[in-house]
Design a protein around this nucleic acid. Sequence first.
DNA 1: ACAAAAGTGTTGCACGTACACCCATGT
DNA 2: ACATGGGTGTACGTGCAACACTTTTGT
Lengths: 229, 229
Amino acid sequence: MEEILPAFDSAFSIDCLIFGFDAGELKILLIERNEEPFKDWLALPGYFVKQDESLDDAADRILYELTGLRDLPMKQFHTFGEVNRHPQGRVVTVGYYALIRINGQKELRPISPYARKAIWRSVNDLPKLAFDHSEIFSKGFRIIRKRLNYQPISFDLLPEKFTLTQLQGLYEAILNKKLDKRNFRKKMLSYGFLKELVEKQKGVSYRAAKLYKFDRRKYAKIFQSEMTA
Amino acid sequence: MEEILPAFDSAFSIDCLIFGFDAGELKILLIERNEEPFKDWLALPGYFVKQDESLDDAADRILYELTGLRDLPMKQFHTFGEVNRHPQGRVVTVGYYALIRINGQKELRPISPYARKAIWRSVNDLPKLAFDHSEIFSKGFRIIRKRLNYQPISFDLLPEKFTLTQLQGLYEAILNKKLDKRNFRKKMLSYGFLKELVEKQKGVSYRAAKLYKFDRRKYAKIFQSEMTA
DNA sequence: ACAAAAGTGTTGCACGTACACCCATGT
DNA sequence: ACATGGGTGTACGTGCAACACTTTTGT
């Protein structure tokens, strides 16, 4: 940032925290920036909101332009407004998050030249990110982890059919601690929104596990009070 | 709003949801607007953020200027960014809230001429507010009510010394339902952050109740994990 | 004496937690 | 046969909900 950058008065932007789960690891979607400031740095997918679009609309558009992912159910988690968080001027940014299936998505392919590419990185192996994105990540991750304690939010991270061990691995990755297998299964099954399939796991060199599906209708019935808030 | 109003490009603002408790009723702090747009309407205390102040700083300043209240522990709860929420231009507003003692505060006295006066109104008796402030109120109230289910947040609303019946009345006002007296007392006392005083209630024409104080240190020890998030 | 609110315990149920062994399958 | 994860049950403690009567005080 030794160069002189254009300045602007004030603006708002969106930054997206997109979580995915793959190979037993919780990952986050980052872009490689192709523009100053912070050219070549890794950053959260984020950009400016246009005059005539709502924040929610902007979040969808921006994520699409920078990563090729579209129509994710993103939600706001916090707004960041320190005066000097952006080197070019006053930018207040609204943080959005979503949890998605990595493999269920098509290829990552930025539309805008502003991102060179989009990549998944393990949350346990993050470099320092552009702007204050490292802090935005920490704050968002903390909020999501906390939410997991009183509301299951993790089914969007798994493939459509999954085993209970995979589900447990996901919880352990988010909460960053080991859970008891029997208790975990008992609790999950007691909710009643897991549908047991006849189909079993394939291609493993040990006893094949039952596959399950997530029943969105039952889930919605149980947690509707949570969802309206 | 038949008049022509000055227009501006885009800006961010703060709106404050200040809850108080008095005479068994949960109240909210409103201002009577003294400027267009929405002159003479009731509104949440709110105004524009300056170029050189953070959102948190702006929230403190704005609340002070419009109501005379200062240094409340306000926290962000949501950001509102619909395109046409403000008639003069694009304004994204960040909602902050706080819970305070009504009687512990000095008089309400707006500093800025922008508010004619500041008043407390029962949350059960709110008129339509200026801008989208009615929706901001609903959203914030819902969030706070929900939080009360898993974290006591209500001590700031009571006088320093209070009876358990007062505390219960407060919970009932927020949750909008009756609670069982014995269960409520058992639960509250079991937390261990209520200090029983020797002093008793005075001036009542029935058996005087014990007074209690809230022990902030013990509370912080118990809920520290909640507070850092 | 009466009115008004203060104060007080027990029981059943649901839920979380701790804990260890046999089973099925592929190599 | 063995290695690997799949799958299962019990016992205990904790916390919440339901429920009604006696006590104290001021008038």
